[in-house]
Design a protein around this nucleic acid. Structure first.
Lengths: 245, 245
DNA sequence: ACCGGTTTAATTATTATACCACTTTCATAT
DNA sequence: ATATGAAAGTGGTATAATAATTAAACCGGT
């Protein structure tokens, strides 16, 4: 007996989504281009405006489009960033599919390699950025968010320098996830988690173009920070447990 | 004069999306639960059905909900899978933010570690699965898709066994991306890309609980397969170039 | 008791229309 | 010149109606 394929019913809006996405991927619409208005698209596709809206919202949520109101508004093609990837990781964390120790293990494994690759490829311009980011870490902080921004800056630069967009995407997700963890756990004194100067040996090794030393330094950092993070979360759980009951 | 705070305008549907998402994350709706119908939600939130629909569709696209038509249909909470993560990676590949060599480099780095961890944690039941998957690889193939399914099975099992959901999620994304690449490039004879038996040394080492040997075997495999993949893509580009102009 | 068809009812999917809200542009008045 | 404000085009929201889908209940013949 032939194995019949079930009749797959697509929703009209999914069909529209797919066509629009393919138009973008094929380069028919380029970054910055404005798509026709919802009313025009409805006429072209011969469907109702709502169907068009659902398709556009789907692509906007996927990071392909930005939608603006107003007379000069409309739907514009935008450059796909790594943000959606990070959000996918964060969702997995929020539903408990990824735990903090698992995140720490991944960081401990991946980040030394990022540092190693960065040490192999660092150039003068990026070296300057790296030094500046390190200096900035040690100036007085105002808010927790600002502190985190500065502490993550070094990681971002290394990820960019490492020369592999896949590693860069992953590193950004690791940073975003870590920030999410910190945000959920709400540390009382944020200073103990990541004291200033922790990055100094890493940056030093990278600037000296010493891959092994860079990897080693990053490994130490990842292990130490990971322990702090896990402890912090443990304290948080206990605090929550005792206060909650 | 008092300093008035600007009224931040969110889209109503985003507000609804957020509330529903939080309800799910807080465990108020659990996997398998049915949300109220669109009409009921519209009444509860005091907004129109369209707003509710956009919110539900957004959460469905993010993998939190499934929507079914019909009398026993409705909106059901579903377990978040790794699929959205893979799709995010695939989108980045499709827009050219991740290249094939970068993918190969990541695989060459990550997969040996997955194999190493798997060798440390394999148990009897999983060992059996692994052996069966290896046998299945060598039976005659029917379709390209079926062939790919069987070739990826070993990787999936190892990813599951490795005991870290983050690695598992990443490994699945690597598989999904690789399949996407193969799909785009459409190899004429798929056999040369990944001959049967390639996984045998890896499985052997894992079953012997030899982490270093498992990592080494996987590394060799990843390098070899990666070279094949890159070559295949090169051939594809040239073929396309000559036939296209 | 089984098995096929048919009806029913609950739900989403789609359409149509209208109006609201936002924001740039530009003419007008001061 | 500058400020004001109307105009116009865009997405955002609301409402109402109809279509399509589908599980389940029902029915009727064998």
């Amino acid at each position: 007996m032939p194995s019949f394929k079930p009749i797959k019913q697509f929703r009209i809006s999914d069909e529209v989504t797919e066509q629009l996405k393919q138009s973008i991927l094929a380069g028919y619409f380029k970054t910055g281009d404005k798509l026709p208005s919802e009313r025009d698209l409805a006429e072209q596709f011969q469907v109702s405006r709502i169907v068009i809206r659902e398709a556009l919202r789907a692509l906007a949520n996927a990071g392909f489009l930005v939608i603006r109101q107003g007379v000069a508004g409309g739907t514009y093609v935008t450059d796909l960033t790594f943000e959606n990837l990070s959000n996918a990781f964060i969702d997995l964390f929020l539903v408990g599919k990824i735990s903090i120790p698992e995140l720490v293990q991944m960081r401990t494994f991946v980040e030394p390699e990022v540092a190693r690759l960065a040490a192999l490829r660092i150039d003068r311009k990026r070296a300057k950025h790296l030094k500046e980011a390190l200096e900035a870490e040690e100036s007085p902080i105002r808010t927790l968010v600002e502190d985190l921004d500065r502490k993550t800056a070094v990681h971002y630069i290394l990820a960019e320098v490492c020369g592999n967009h896949f590693f860069e995407a992953l590193e950004r997700s690791l940073m975003a996830l870590t920030r999410q963890v910190i945000h959920v756990v709400e540390p009382e004194p944020p200073f103990t988690l990541h004291p200033a100067g922790m990055h100094r040996p890493i940056v030093k090794a990278v600037l000296e173009r010493n891959p092994d030393m860079a990897a080693e330094a990053m490994k130490n950092h990842a292990v130490e920070f990971g322990e702090n993070l896990i402890n912090m979360e443990k304290v948080f759980r206990e605090r929550k447990f005792y206060s909650g009951f």
